[in-house]
């Protein structure tokens, strides 16, 4: 099979730009998901009335529906009843809405893994509830749940491939355009796959490294 290198070189800038958009979306999506997940899991920990129920509903809704539909609903559905936002905002909100529930579940199981006696030990040196969360519960929950957080992070970066559906020029969208315009199917797909490898593989190594670092104190190795 002949590979059209000329074509690859000429569309490289296009893919480069798209890859940055993918990375940007993945980054903000993950960051917001972590924040949402953290807040939700703390609400669940303190069993705050009403909010606790809302979190429960949110988690089920978000986990049991596809991102594509969440995005379409946000982007096309809500605009029609008067809520408008840019494609990028919409995409990031969509990713955060999806990822937030996954992160919330990860944090929750991490927090549940902190033993009652650790909490009592923290209380007995006079820590307040907030200090207890910050200095005792979260660091330990974090160490336990780091693998899940990392998996969710990769998951969200991969899910960015879907937001092309609402006209964001990320990798999938660009590939679709390029195939449509130039019929260089093989080269376009090749660059698409390479772009994802360049993004996901280093991310995955980074997360593994981070995981080891976070877990070092408690578990050694």
């Amino acid at each position: 099979m002949d590979i059209n290198w000329q074509f690859i070189i000429s569309t490289l800038p296009l893919y480069q730009k798209a890859a940055w958009i993918t990375i940007k979306l993945g980054f903000w999506g993950t960051l917001l998901s972590l924040i949402i997940g953290l807040v939700c899991s703390i609400i669940l920990y303190f069993r705050i009335k009403i909010l606790k129920e809302l979190v429960g509903i949110y988690v089920e809704l978000s986990r049991n529906t596809p991102l594509l539909i969440q995005l379409f609903f946000l982007y096309f559905g809500l605009t029609k009843i008067g809520i408008t936002m840019s494609e990028t905002t919409c995409a990031i909100i969509g990713l955060a809405f999806l990822g937030g529930s996954y992160m919330s579940e990860a944090f929750r199981s991490g927090i549940e893994a902190v033993s009652k006696t650790q909490i009592e030990s923290g209380l007995s040196i006079g820590l307040s509830q907030m200090q207890l969360i910050r200095y005792v519960i979260l660091p330990q929950a974090f160490a336990v749940t780091m693998p899940s957080l990392a998996a969710n992070c990769i998951f969200l970066f991969k899910e960015t491939s879907i937001v092309g559906a609402i006209a964001i020029a990320e990798l999938m969208h660009v590939t679709q355009d390029v195939i449509g315009m130039y019929y260089q199917t093989f080269e376009s797909l090749f660059m698409l796959v390479v772009a994802y490898l360049i993004i996901i593989l280093p991310l995955s190594f980074l997360l593994t490294w981070l995981e080891r670092k976070v877990r070092y104190a408690e578990f050694g190795n």
Binding site: L61, T65, F73, G77
Partner: peptide, 24 residues
């Protein structure tokens, strides 16, 4: 019906939920 997308996508959202929720 300008709000059609709200209702249609809303319904599809719910349909997916109805299938996936019991499974999970």
């Amino acid at each position: 019906v300008p709000t059609a997308s709200f209702w249609v996508y809303g319904l599809i959202f719910i349909l997916y939920f109805i299938i996936c929720y019991p499974l999970s």
